[in-house]
């Protein structure tokens, strides 16, 4: 447990603080997220996702659920500050992930973002990172709603395909290694 908390506590805390309004909400959310991580651990498959991506996925789920509940309670939008929108720098990204070692998929995502137009990057960031609705992004960026949806869907779809191909290759390589091992023995 301490290893897990030490390894991912900072990341999860950072994700929670960015999305939730109060310190108490964020603390409660982090507790919920860790419980969900224990519950879901048996479903983790390292050939499908990095450990940290899996953890971040669970964190996103719980945070989105909590934000939904808050919205239902107060009918107001999240009050967090929008992140500074800037192009993703692979150099900057690399510096950030070296110490964490496991962010291979996030590196693929960063490289993928580099291939996108800055406008698409910005829309994706406002959606995925800041959690804004499509309509709010359209308002913020002055882009047509259809364009916003299209940028988001295309960006996520293409990354998903890249990641799926990686996991397929990893699965095949694993199978080859396994067969080779069997053959050798």
């Amino acid at each position: 447990m301490p290893e897990c908390v030490s390894k991912y506590g900072g990341l999860i805390w950072s994700l929670a603080k960015r999305r939730l309004r109060s310190q108490q909400d964020a603390e409660d959310a982090v507790q919920e997220i860790f419980i969900d991580i224990w519950r879901s651990a048996g479903r983790f498959d390292p050939l499908v996702a990095d450990e940290v991506t899996f953890v971040a996925m669970i964190a996103r789920r719980r945070l989105i659920d909590r934000m939904r509940r808050q919205k239902n309670q107060s009918n107001t939008c999240s009050l967090h500050e929008l992140s500074v929108v800037e192009a993703v720098s692979v150099q900057r990204f690399s510096e950030g992930v070296v110490a964490l070692e496991l962010w291979d998929e996030a590196r693929v995502a960063a490289e993928h973002l580099q291939e996108l137009h800055p406008e698409e990057q910005r829309v994706l960031r406002l959606s995925v990172y800041d959690g804004l609705s499509h309509a709010a992004i359209a308002e913020q960026t002055l882009l047509p709603l259809g364009t916003v949806k299209s940028h988001i869907r295309r960006g996520l779809h293409s990354l998903r395909q890249k990641l799926s191909r990686r996991s397929s290759v990893a699965t095949r390589d694993s199978s080859i290694r396994s067969n080779a091992k069997t053959g050798a023995s």
Binding site: L11, S14, L15, V48, A49, V52, T53, F54, A56, M57, A59, R60, R61, S83, V84, E86, V88, S89, R92, F93, E95, G96, V97, V98, A99, L100, W103, E105, A106, R107, V108, A109, A110, L113, L124, R125, V128, Y129, G155, L156, L159, R160, L163
Partner: peptide
């Protein structure tokens, strides 16, 4: 969801302070 999480991590990492030590 995994694709969205990977994007979120990429944005998160790119938001860290410059320099490996500071980022870590």
């Amino acid at each position: 969801e995994l694709a969205a999480a990977a994007f979120e991590l990429a944005f998160e990492a790119s938001s860290l302070p410059a320099g490996r030590d500071h980022a870590a």
